[in-house]
Nucleic acid binder design. Structure first.
Lengths: 305, 305
DNA sequence: TTATAGCGATAGCTTTTTCTTATGATGAAT
DNA sequence: ATTCATCATAAGAAAAAGCTATCGCTATAA
């Protein structure tokens, strides 16, 4: 096994440049004997002499000359690697893969991504939108760096951080506008439109209504909050949506918003990542940006109404 | 200064391949802690983490992944360099710069180069033909690896090795064929054609005739042995040439060869190189090839006559 | 010629780095 | 709950790399 070291190559290169052991050693900030020894060792591992030590000067052999060409190439790429690594230190990280649940993504992301790109322009952001269980899986498999989901999760391997809590509001047809807000009990007898199985938001809504899980026949699955609202507008029932969705979803349908009087239902949105993730520090920072974006979104929504 | 070592890069690469500290350490033939420490140190000099140590597996970070790409490139070129160096060990040396004096070159070289190429096909041979003083200069400046000249030189910095000794023969016009060979004394009064100043062969011829150096008016300078012989053929005088030149030079002119009876003049041709040259061993080998080629040449010449 | 200065190699010793073994801590699996 | 697997840490041993001092050789100056 031919086993030279980068140090030896650096010393060698210096010696080719100076043609003088003493001066090359100075350039390497070591003593002349140290350089002598390393060059000698390099020659021994190569089983060929690199320099001819004349009384006048130190000259490269033909072999040494060809060797020097390749060594210079290698040293250059090593230095480039070091430069690149140094330059990369400032970047929070090159690529950030974020998972988001579908009941958050369309409302939060536009503003959030804008904010994130502003504060970390070099970031290569990738978004994955799917249900919580999938996100967790992919997170643990290292396919995602973080996920924005509804808390709590209680996954022992993940760090959770709460971002904000928002109310869930009742969406009903405009014709019901002004009517008294139904109680939870009354809700159970209304036609409650929900997302399909798998969405955490469905579970949250159901639990609010004290419906345990096996849903009554009155329920109808929809594939997105947007669809649900449109169906409400068509008079097919009522639904619950998180506050952040209000602005976007209620504009284009004849629906009105009602808040529950006591026991306001709410959900907590948070960010999670692997406890082992080396990005923890940066993710903590990013979570602040999410909070900020969400706050902006909330203000926008409340000013609308 | 970012100062990682080749070892660290090798360990890093192994860990990316195995995704497991223990197995990577095995692959590197070191203990697991040794690898752990080196990876940690690498991460510290980079001020960035390369791996995420999960409980399930060891995964590259985004930074580590990009780093790995560059590291693989570097390791590949280092290994290629080692391979190349190993392969070069067998070659006697890539490039061999040989100087030859003009009174040897045209006779010896054709056969010698053929022989040399046969025994060392990979050799990049370069020939320089000029007078001894120049050859010595260039040899000492490192522009030549060896020179074939007439001995002795007595340059303290050079190693001399004798190759062969050959007679000098008298070349005179055909009309003098059969006449008694002139003595040295008689030669002094004949029109002796010689090479111009600077050629060692001129000095040798003169010294044989006991002419010290300032040559008599009878002399006429020619630029090559070939020219001298042609001039002899034209009846302009006589000349001396080394035996190896006989075959080539006397064919195309009406001249005949005569050997001196006593005190046969001769010259010794040898090879020289810097005492410090790392090629000494190989040059010694090459000198044997020269001897062999010269012997072949001599046999050819004697069989001619 | 002898003296002197410059240069690289070598020797002996010290410091630094790297490795090994032993052990600790943590999460996963039985 | 225990055991196993895995990576990290600690302490001491081994190896590598460095320094100072000095040698031997050349070349230059006197």
């Amino acid at each position: 096994m031919m086993n030279f070291t980068l140090k030896q190559l650096r010393y060698f290169e210096a010696l080719t440049r100076h043609g003088h052991f003493g001066r090359a050693a100075d350039a390497c900030a070591i003593s002349q004997p140290a350089l002598s020894v390393q060059i000698k060792e390099l020659e021994q591992t190569l089983k060929a002499s690199l320099f001819e030590r004349g009384s006048k000067q130190v000259r490269l052999t033909a072999f040494g000359e060809k060797f020097a060409l390749r060594v210079r190439d290698i040293l250059r790429s090593v230095d480039e690697l070091a430069d690149w690594a140094r330059a990369s230190q400032n970047e929070i990280i090159g690529r950030l893969r974020i998972g988001v649940i579908p009941t958050v993504a369309p409302y939060l992301l536009p503003g959030f991504i804008k904010d994130l790109k502003r504060s970390h322009p070099e970031l290569d952001i990738r978004i994955r939108e799917t249900v919580t269980s999938r996100l967790i899986e992919e997170l643990e498999d290292g396919l995602l760096d973080t996920a924005i989901v509804a808390l709590p999760l209680s996954e022992p391997s993940l760090t959770e951080i709460a971002l904000f809590t928002e109310d869930l509001v009742l969406i009903r047809h405009n014709k019901d506008h002004g009517k008294p807000v139904p109680t939870q009990k009354e809700l159970q007898n209304m036609r409650l439109l929900l997302l399909e199985e798998g969405h955490c938001f469905r579970t949250q809504a159901l639990s609010f209504c004290n419906i345990l899980s096996a849903s009554p026949k009155e329920e109808l699955d929809g594939s997105s909050l947007s669809t649900l609202v449109q169906m409400v507008g068509a008079g097919m029932g009522v639904t619950l949506i998180p506050e952040m969705a209000v602005g976007v979803e209620t504009r284009s349908a004849p629906v009105s918003i009602a808040r529950f009087e006591n026991a306001q239902p709410a959900r907590t949105v948070g960010m999670v990542w692997r406890k082992t993730s080396p990005l923890s520090k940066q993710l903590m920072e990013i979570s602040k940006i999410v909070c900020h974006s969400a706050k902006g979104l909330r203000q926008q929504n409340t000013s609308d109404h």
